[in-house]
Write a protein that binds this DNA or RNA. Structure first.
Lengths: 247, 247
DNA sequence: CGTTGAATCTCGACT
DNA sequence: AGTCGAGGTTCAACG
């Protein structure tokens, strides 16, 4: 039996299932009317309402309403779940240290409690990250510029590490800043700081900077021009139709 | 009845409940063995495993494994859920446009399907945010410095909007940058850019900058000194024991 | 441990 | 719809 369910259980019966499930590594969902209090890095209170509470065997707890991707309250992995009954009401408390944080869920009404046995050894395979973009360019540096020769990634500068560092066709230092999606002015000023840091380091004034991203905002485009920085439109994934690539 | 549950249903019975629930705004959970494919801003594939799938009436879909706070796959609010049966297997597809994104969940085994009616009008009350820190300072500007007189929040500069702008006891322009938690060098350079932008704007060289945060890293402290910027240790919430406030 | 930076960031606010 | 900035960001990598 991979799923054990109680419908409209008493708070004590719910407690029994929760304690058993916490003990043997099952994932638990509780649906009902509850209030939630959190105290830790910040603090919050949430009045009564119907919510889906998910307790994972790794110590994660999620409180979901009928809206939004983000849980309205939560605890990260590594927390300790404890269930109890106070004044005849089920309470789930999840806490951790460093930092000290506590989440309290008090149920006024229980609609359903379920414990699931989970078997999942499969890992997610994701494409389209900034890392993919880096790989793409290192395999074919001409995507940035004909004659570009990368010499290092994550090279340290006084302004922080740069994504790709190398030389252009004429032997000038070239800094490449990567962004996996459309970027604003912050990326341009970050690139400018790298260029300035390297010009100081080399006591030179011919360090070049190129921003590689799918597209940039208008203001960013101005900033790049003002600072003599370049831009190359490139997406982390090669698309069949390069429809909205240029901007 | 706020919760309707099917145990080990046929894929067709599950489809019926899903279609009904999607139609009348219920929240649905499906637990079973499934594969997941995503394509949109990035793309991913996930092999077969046991997962909890949550479909919210606002168009959110979450695929949770037994680990981590983050769903292994998801779609944000505003998506359209569609359920179907192909080759005798339940499939849930959630998609949207701008950007084009699709999530496909195919079930090999169904353990449980539940539809919940959710009533939740309660709003979260959160304390300890940067907004709280701003309030604290505007109510008592001396927390930053004796004689500080704020004149504007979110004042625009060439380097972007500054958190709090005003004058010090001697009438010099003063920029305050707020951070709700311990900060790194980026906050210091951001503040420096504000000061420089305002010195250009005023054609002056006496613009001051103060960083307000619970604490700063060592390197950041150096950066602040180098640039003649100030630092005030302050937390968004007044704590009973100001234990780790100074740094 | 803390520190750093990406993320299918999410989310709200504002233009 | 696009842009911007905060977040109890989360998360993994690295020192």
């Amino acid at each position: 039996m991979t799923a054990t369910t109680l419908h409209r259980p008493t708070h004590r019966d719910a407690l029994s299932l929760l304690e058993a499930a916490f003990g043997d590594g099952r994932l638990v969902t509780v649906f009902g009317r509850c209030t939630v209090e959190y105290d830790g890095r910040a603090s919050s209170t949430l009045g009564a309402g119907d919510r889906l509470v998910v307790c994972k065997p790794d110590g994660t707890i999620l409180v979901h309403t009928d809206q939004n991707r983000k849980p309205v309250n939560w605890q990260p992995p590594g927390c300790t779940h404890r269930a109890s009954v106070r004044d005849g009401r089920l309470r789930i408390r999840s806490s951790r240290t460093t930092p000290d944080e506590t989440l309290d869920v008090r149920f006024e009404r229980l609609d359903q409690v379920t414990a699931y046995e989970v078997n999942d050894r499969s890992d997610l395979s994701l494409q389209g990250s900034e890392e993919d973009l880096r790989q793409r360019i290192l395999e074919d540096p001409a995507l940035v510029e004909e004659g570009f020769e990368p010499s290092a990634t994550e090279r340290e500068t006084a302004a922080g590490p740069v994504d790709i560092f190398g030389e252009d066709a004429e032997g000038r230092p070239l800094v490449v800043e990567l962004k996996r999606r459309r970027v604003g002015p912050s990326a341009a000023s970050q690139l400018q700081r790298y260029v300035e840091a390297l010009e100081t380091e080399f006591a030179a004034d011919d360090v070049r900077g190129i921003l590689v991203a799918p597209s940039v905002t208008d203001r960013t485009s101005e900033l790049l021009e003002e600072n003599g920085l370049g831009f190359v439109a490139l997406e982390p994934l090669a698309r069949e139709a390069a429809d909205g690539a240029g901007d």
